Simulated scan of single mutants.
Amino acid sequence: MKPKVFLEFVEIKSLIASVLPFVLGSMYAYYNYHQLHLGYLLLFFIASSLFHMATNANDNYQDFLHAPRNDDNQEFLQETNVVGVNQISIGQARTITFGLAGISLIIGLWLVTQTGLPLLWMGLYSYAVGYFYAGGPKPISQGPFGEFFSGFTMGFMIFWIAVFINTYDTAAITWQSTLAVLIASGLAIFAISNIMLANNICDMDEDIALGRHTILYYLGKPVMLQVFAWSYVAGYACLVIAVLMGVLPKFSLLTLLSIIPVWKNTRVFLHKQVKRETFKISIKNATLICLSFIVFMSLGLIFN
């Protein structure tokens, strides 16, 4: 397989959706606990990145494998799905998927032996979501909860695991500390879940033709467009609450400046939802929000 095809198959461009929460979680740990375990952190970064690629690969080949073989879906099978376009064999797709996931799993299990069982339970949840997102008899991505699981797993779980790996030897996991992490990661959760939501909004007709009953099928496009817009508001509200709680530096509030370009981009998407033209707006917004968060949180760490 050519490198270009491989990178397209694992959707390497989407990797930023897991990298940003990883960075934010590490910064959160340093701000609140004043320590980092850089070696473990690097291994977790490698493991999470490999598993993200494995999940993307699994999504692509499962979509191709289970798509109805009829005239209505020939365009999807031959011109849209990366497996069909590049004539990737199912055997080759599975080898890449399970190979990436296997290496990630080995690294993750070793980290469990060094940091403790909480990482095992976090990892089991993440791996289960990663597989059942597109695999199994009733894939998550084909139901109404895809947005929740993608945003929660990537925006919160990666953030939380990064915090745990850096603090496993000094801080116990409590309901209070978990709630604080959840609120602090809210901005990332909603921004990432909106990527999935934008994808489903753009693909609504195609999804229905393929038998996928996403949240759009139940609530309709007008309602979910409003959810798309208000999700950003909810994320910014989480940021403000986290600063008031004292778990994020006050400089983080400067992230609110990103509201201006984010709202401008959102208005464009609300006006037009075309996959090849406006879906990328959700990725731009998520990147803009999280990078702004990282920059201004960094200032908070420097001048705290």
Score class of each variant (00 low, 15 high):
Pro137Ser: 14
Phe152Glu: 11
Gly146Val: 09
Gly155Arg: 02
Gln114Glu: 15
Gln87Arg: 09
Ile88Pro: 00
Ala101Val: 00
Leu120Met: 12
Ala162Gln: 09
Ile90Lys: 00
Trp160Tyr: 13
Leu105Tyr: 03
Phe98Ser: 01
Ile90Leu: 15
Ser150Asp: 06
Gly143Phe: 05
Gly91Asn: 04
Leu119Gln: 06
Leu117Ser: 10
Ala128Ser: 13
Val129Cys: 03
Arg94Pro: 00
Phe164Pro: 10
Val129His: 07
Trp121Asp: 07
Leu100Arg: 01
Lys138Met: 12
Gln142His: 14
Gly136Pro: 13
Ile161Gln: 15
Pro118Trp: 13
Ile107Gly: 04
Leu105Met: 07
Phe156Arg: 06
Val112Ala: 01
Phe98Ala: 02
Ser150Arg: 01
Met157Phe: 12
Phe164Ser: 13
Tyr133Gly: 09
Ala128Pro: 00
Ser104Arg: 04
Ala93Lys: 00
Gly146Phe: 14
Gln114Leu: 13
Gly135Tyr: 10
Met157Tyr: 06
Gly102Met: 05
Ser104Phe: 01
Gly151Asp: 09
Ser89Phe: 07
Thr115Ala: 14
Ser141Cys: 14
Met157Val: 14
Pro137Cys: 11
Pro118Arg: 11
Thr153Asn: 14
Met122Val: 04
Trp160Asn: 07
Leu119Ile: 06
Phe145Leu: 13
Ala101His: 08
Ile90Thr: 02
Gly143Cys: 07
Tyr127Ser: 14
Phe156Trp: 08
Gly155Thr: 08
Val112Glu: 13
Gly143Asp: 04
Gln142Lys: 14
Gly102Arg: 01
Gly151Thr: 11
Thr113Gln: 11
Gly108Cys: 09
Gln92Met: 05
Val163Trp: 13
Gly116Leu: 05
Ala134Thr: 15
Gln114Pro: 11
Gln87His: 05
Tyr131Asn: 09
Tyr125Pro: 09
Tyr127His: 06
Gly155Phe: 11
Ser104Val: 02
Ile106Pro: 02
Thr153Leu: 10
Lys138Asp: 11
Val163Lys: 06
Phe156Asp: 08
Ile106Glu: 04
Gly116Thr: 08
Gly102Ala: 15
